[in-house]
Write a protein that binds this DNA or RNA. Structure first.
Lengths: 145, 145
DNA sequence: TACACTAATTATAAAGATTATTATGTAATA
DNA sequence: TATTACATAATAATCTTTATAATTAGTGTA
C-alpha cells in the first residue's frame, strides 16, 4: 500500500534532481512506513542495523532535502527534538501529554480562521497548524489505579 | 496600564509563596511590558544592563516559576528557542514566516474541535493550540520591490 | 533589630539536538 | 576515462536548556 507512495516520492525526488542513495531510500522508506512521526534520532537508531556506518548528519541532511521538496513536514512541540511527518495531506495532531504519543486527526480545514486572521492582522496568510492536547486512552487506564 | 497587571502578578506570586527578588521582578516586568513574546535569551540580554551579574539560569528558573504558577505560557515554534507570552487569556498567534513577528489574534475557542477529537481518538482532551502562518504587512511591502 | 532558616542567585559544567566542516567516496557526464 | 558535482562519514562546533554546588539574600520570629 505504501509501496505506491514510496515510488511516487522517488519520482518526485528524481524530478528535483536528487540522487537516490541507499541511505536516502532507507530514510524515506522508514518514514513512509512509520505511523509514529519519529524524531531524527529514532530514524537513525532504526536504520543503524542496516547501515552500521551511517552518520546522524546524513539523517538530518536527508530530512532537510525531503522537507525542502515538500515530501515531509517538520513538527516542533514543547519537547527537545523535532518530529517528522510524511503525511502531507491536511490534518491535525492530537498529542498525549503523558506519553507523548501523536495521533493524526482529520477535521475540515479551518479556512474561516485564516480569512479572519487576514482581515484582522493584515497578514497574507498561507497556512495554519493546530494541535489538540490531552491524555490517550492507554494513559487514562494506567492512571486509573 | 500594565502597572496593574504587574501588581496582580506579584500578588499571585506571593500567594504561591514565591519571593519577589529584584531579578524576578525585572523579568516579570519586562515580560508584561513587552508585546513581542521574547525568548529567554532576549530577556537575559535586555536585563544585562540593569543586572550585570545576572545568570542565564536565573532567567530560565524564573520563567519556569511563572509558567508553573500560570502567569506565562511557553510557545514553541519551528525555530530553536522557546518564546514566552504573559497574556494568558485565550488567544491564538499569527506568525510572519519572513521576519518571525508574532501577533496575538482573538477568535472564539474551537470547543467543537476538542470534543470531536475526543470522540474520534478516545483521548481525554484538555486544551489545544493553533498558529496561523503568513507574511506580515511590513514584509509584504518590502517584497513588493 | 538580629538570627536562623530557606529559597534564590551565580558560576559553571553538562546534556542534548542540530548544524558546520572537511576529507573521502560515489554517481553522472562529457 | 577524466572531470565535475553531489553524498556520506566522522568529527567538531554551536546553541538552547538543565543540573550542580557554593554563595548570597529574603523572610519570619524572637
Amino acid at each position: 500500500m505504501s509501496e505506491k507512495r514510496l515510488q511516487e516520492a522517488i519520482v518526485t525526488l528524481k524530478d528535483s534532481g536528487v540522487r537516490i542513495t541507499p541511505q536516502r531510500h532507507a530514510v524515506l522508506e522508514f518514514l513512509l512506513n512509520s505511523m509514529t512521526h519519529p524524531t531524527a534520532d529514532e530514524i537513525y537508531k532504526a536504520l543503524e542495523g542496516k547501515f552500521p556506518n551511517m552518520s546522524v548528519a546524513t539523517v538530518y541532511n536527508n530530512l532537510r532535502v525531503f522537507k525542502d521538496i515538500g515530501l515531509v513536514r517538520e513538527l516542533t512541540y514543547g519537547d527537545a527534538s523535532s518530529r517528522f511527518d510524511c503525511n502531507t495531506t491536511e490534518h491535525y495532531h492530537v498529542i498525549c501529554e503523558s506519553c507523548g504519543k501523536i495521533v493524526d486527526f482529520h477535521y475540515p480545514s479551518l479556512d474561516e480562521v485564516e480569512s479572519l486572521a487576514e482581515q484582522v492582522t493584515g497578514f497574507d496568510v498561507s497556512n495554519h497548524r493546530m494541535e489538540v492536547y490531552g491524555t490517550c486512552s492507554d494513559c487514562q487506564s494506567k492512571n486509573a489505579h
